[in-house]
Nucleic acid binder design. Structure first.
Lengths: 172, 172
DNA sequence: ATTGCATGTAAGTAAGTACTCACTTTAACA
DNA sequence: TGTTAAAGTGAGTACTTACTTACATGCAAT
C-alpha cells in the first residue's frame, strides 16, 4: 500500500463515518502516518481528496447497476435488482456510507444516472403488468435504497430473509 | 421574537441545511444579529444549542406519531400512518431535515421510540391479515420514512397522488 | 436608593484550520 | 555517474474556531 493509497483509505473511512467537515487534514495525515503536506501534493486540496473518493464511488455505482441495465428481460431485470442487495461487498461499505453522507448536503449529482435507472425499473414493472409502473418504480427505488442503507450501516441482521421477502413482491 | 428565539431559528435553518460542523457560532450570531457571546450565555456551548433543538425535535416527533399509537382499530392506525405524511407542516420542514442530518452520524437515540412505533405497525398489519407482519412493518416504516424525507427535501412534487398510491397497498 | 439578577456586548484567547514553501530523499534512466 | 522528476517532509502561513472575560444596561424586589 503506497502512502497515497493510505491517505485515500483513511480519508474514506473517516469521511464516511464522521462526515467531511468533522475530519481535518492534519488528523488524516497523522492516522495515515504521512506528512500533512503530502495530502496537498497528491490531491491539491481537501476538496480534491473528496473528489477523488467520489470518482471511485461513482464508478463502483455504475458497475453495481450495470447488470440491471443490461438484463435481457423485464423479469430478469427485476430479479437482478435484489441480487444487487445480496451481493454488496463489505469491503465497499464505506463507499456507500460516504454516498449517504454526500447525498444529504450538496445537491449531489447522482440524479442523471438515477433517472436512467428509474426509467429502467419503470419499463420492467410495466412489462410485468404493474398498473402504475412509474410510481411503483419510484417506490421500488426507495425500498432498495433504504435496504442498502440498512445493510451498509449494519442495521439489517436478517438480510437474506428480508431481501427474499422483498423479491416475492416484485419478481415472484 | 426574542434574541434567544432568533438564535434558535437561525441555528435550526443552518444546521438542517449545511450540517452541524459546517456552521460556526460566529456566523449564526451574525445572521441572528446578536453578539456571539449571547449564544454561550443562553446555551452554554455550541453542542448545547444543538441539544435544545434536538429536544424540540423529539417532542415534535412524539406529537406526530401519537395519533397512530392511540388509534382505536388496526385499520384506523394504518390509515393514520399516511395522514401523517399528508399533514407535515412546512413550518416544521427544517426540524425533519435536521433529524436526517443527525441520524447519519452519532448512533442517534430515536431507537427506543422507533421500536414502539414498529411494534404498533406490526400489530396493525397482523390484525389486517398480512402474512409476515414484522417484516412488513419494517418495510412500511422505511417507505414512510423515505416519503417523509422526499417531502421535506421538496423532491416529491406529486405528493398527494403518491401517498394515495401507498395507502391503497396497506389500508384499502 | 440599592441590591441582585438576567440580558446583552466588545474584545479578547488559545487551539485548530486548510494550505504553502523551502528543502531532502528516492529511484529510474541516458 | 550525474540528471531529473516525483515523492515526501516539517515548519511555517494567515485565518477561523469555540469559548471567556470584563463590563454595561434595564428592571423588579427589598
Amino acid at each position: 500500500m503506497t502512502k497515497k493509497e493510505r491517505i485515500l483509505s483513511v480519508a474514506l473511512y473517516r469521511f464516511a463515518h464522521e462526515g467531511y467537515n468533522a475530519v481535518s487534514t492534519a488528523s488524516i495525515a497523522k492516522e495515515a502516518e504521512v506528512s500533512e503536506g503530502l495530502i496537498f501534493k497528491h490531491f491539491k486540496s481537501k476538496q480534491g481528496l473528496l473528489d477523488t473518493l467520489r470518482e471511485e464511488l461513482e464508478s463502483k455505482m455504475a458497475a453495481k447497476v450495470q447488470p440491471v441495465m443490461e438484463a435481457a428481460t423485464a423479469a430478469e431485470a427485476l430479479h437482478l435488482v435484489f441480487d444487487l442487495l445480496l451481493n454488496v461487498d463489505p469491503v465497499d461499505f464505506n463507499y456507500w456510507r460516504l454516498q449517504y453522507q454526500l447525498k444529504l448536503n450538496e445537491a449531489y449529482e447522482g440524479h442523471r444516472s438515477a433517472q436512467l435507472y428509474l426509467d429502467r425499473l419503470s419499463w420492467a414493472l410495466q412489462e410485468s403488468g404493474f398498473p402504475e409502473p412509474e410510481m411503483e418504480a419510484q417506490l421500488l427505488f426507495e425500498i432498495v435504497d433504504s435496504a442498502l442503507k440498512r445493510i451498509v450501516f449494519e442495521e439489517l441482521p436478517e438480510k437474506e430473509k428480508y431481501i427474499e421477502f422483498l423479491r416475492k413482491k416484485y419478481a415472484p
